[in-house]
């Protein structure tokens, strides 16, 4: 089992519905977010390329946040999902420093919080909230080990990239380009 997400940057319109869905589903405090949308503009008129990316924790195989956690609060669940155990987190901030994607934040209650791939939904067989609400259906979620899963199929047929693979993290959010 290896959960991953593929996001089609050519279908995404940057509506930020994924962000709102996540905040509602996971009770993310106001002013914080577990996922966000970036717009990258390359070139100048008339040759302009815009890329929209819905970003979040990459649930890396070689996760620096899990390595640097002094208490083991940050850990990898079955399926490669990187999670934080609230009652073990001391709020030292090491994992926030270690993440090349700035995907973690310090929750106002003290512990560190981040995207969970909506593990509570995934365990019931549902899709993560962000994927479920996407109005353009540009997000694909599933098991990379299963050759016939939605995410495996789309990655076989499309050109894709991951963010900062040079950081050595082996990220698992793929952007279809």
């Amino acid at each position: 089992m290896r959960y991953a997400m593929a996001i089609d940057t050519r279908k995404c319109v940057g509506c930020s519905d994924c962000v709102v869905a996540c905040q509602t589903e996971n009770d993310v405090p106001i002013g914080f977010c577990r996922d966000w949308v970036t717009e990258t503009v390359d070139g100048s008129y008339p040759n302009v390329v815009i890329e929209l990316r819905s970003e979040r924790c990459n649930h890396c195989d070689y996760s620096p946040c899990v390595r640097c956690c002094p208490t083991g609060a940050s850990h990898i669940e079955d399926g490669g999902i990187v999670l934080v155990t609230k009652s073990k987190c001391i709020g030292c901030g090491a994992c926030i420093q270690s993440c090349p994607y700035e995907a973690r934040y310090s929750h106002p209650d003290g512990y560190v919080d981040k995207c969970t791939f909506c593990i509570h939904r995934v365990r019931k067989g549902e899709k993560p909230a962000c994927v479920a609400v996407c109005p353009t259906k540009c997000m694909y979620f599933g098991d990379l080990d299963d050759e016939n899963s939605e995410v495996s199929t789309i990655l076989k047929n499309r050109k894709f990239k991951a963010l900062a693979p040079e950081a050595g993290t082996q990220p698992h959010i793929y952007y279809l380009v």
Partner: peptide, 26 residues
């Protein structure tokens, strides 16, 4: 003082994680 989840600081001394410099430093 730097910790943000202060009441849980003792968790540092329930494990020894060699991969984490902060752990063996503690």
């Amino acid at each position: 003082l730097d910790l943000k989840h202060k009441l849980y600081f003792w968790q540092l001394y329930t494990t020894m994680r060699f991969e984490s410099p902060m752990s063996w430093g503690a």
